[in-house]
């Protein structure tokens, strides 16, 4: 079962479930942020996009302290796959599960548009359906999505191959064009683009399935 965490202010929680359930046929449940444990049959956790706690203070700063985050951290520490999309990515960075932080977009505007991305690696559980170097198109929609890391941290992240997605044309001022980054262990992934909004041919294309489908494959194969 795929657990989609529902924070107060989550917006893309239902969309993420739709992509998993209606498009990929993967069972999913909404898990309320006040839960202190994940359901026992949880095989993967997704932190959806939105404005948890209104994004007041800093994006993701308060979502990080939701009771459920303790359980998510334990799940990740035990090697369980965790994906944070947009606001979910911001929460994972704030929680220290992913390196770096997300800053205000370079031009200060919220940006909603489909962007071209380069998949850097295909040998991960989040990108196995794509090919390394493949150019894919997925929408972004955020006001604070410029990934930032100090040079030393960036060098370490690059060296370990943690960058999985890069913008072909940088829309927001992210350092090194980073759009999606993985943790060292390879089981936690955060990305600003919204794969759940590119899962149907007539509604933005299906490149998002390259990401979400990879995760579903990994979980399904893991069960065998």
């Amino acid at each position: 079962m795929f657990a989609v965490i529902q924070f107060p202010g989550s917006n893309d929680d239902r969309d993420t479930r739709f992509a998993l359930k209606s498009v990929l046929g993967a069972p999913s449940e909404l898990v309320w942020h006040k839960s202190v444990e994940l359901p026992s049959d949880t095989r993967a956790v997704l932190l959806p996009g939105g404005f948890s706690y209104g994004d007041y203070l800093r994006c993701g700063a308060m979502g990080r302290f939701s009771p459920v985050m303790g359980a998510v951290k334990r799940f990740a520490d035990a090697g369980g796959p965790v994906v944070g999309i947009c606001n979910g990515f911001q929460i994972l960075c704030e929680a220290g599960l992913l390196p770096g932080a997300l800053l205000r977009n370079r031009d200060l505007h919220f940006i909603c548009e489909t962007v071209a991305l380069r998949v850097e690696r295909s040998d991960t559980i989040f990108t196995s359906r794509a090919a390394a170097g493949q150019r894919i198109h997925i929408p972004i929609k955020h006001g604070e999505g410029a990934w930032f890391a100090e040079p030393e941290l960036l060098a370490r992240v690059e060296e370990r191959g943690q960058v999985l997605l890069r913008y072909c044309e940088n829309p927001n001022g992210a350092v090194a064009d980073v759009a999606g980054v993985m943790n060292e262990a390879g089981n936690v992934f955060g990305l600003m683009p919204h794969p759940e909004h590119a899962v149907e041919p007539a509604l933005g294309g299906t490149d998002g399935l390259l990401i979400l489908g990879s995760l579903v494959d990994a979980v399904t194969e893991g069960r065998k």
Binding site: R14, F18, G49, I111, C112, K141, H194, A202
Partner: peptide, 14 residues
């Protein structure tokens, strides 16, 4: 103007 609006949330924008 509309680049600053979320046009996609709820996943129904044809």
């Amino acid at each position: 103007i509309w680049r600053q609006y979320d046009q996609l949330v709820q996943g129904n924008t044809v």
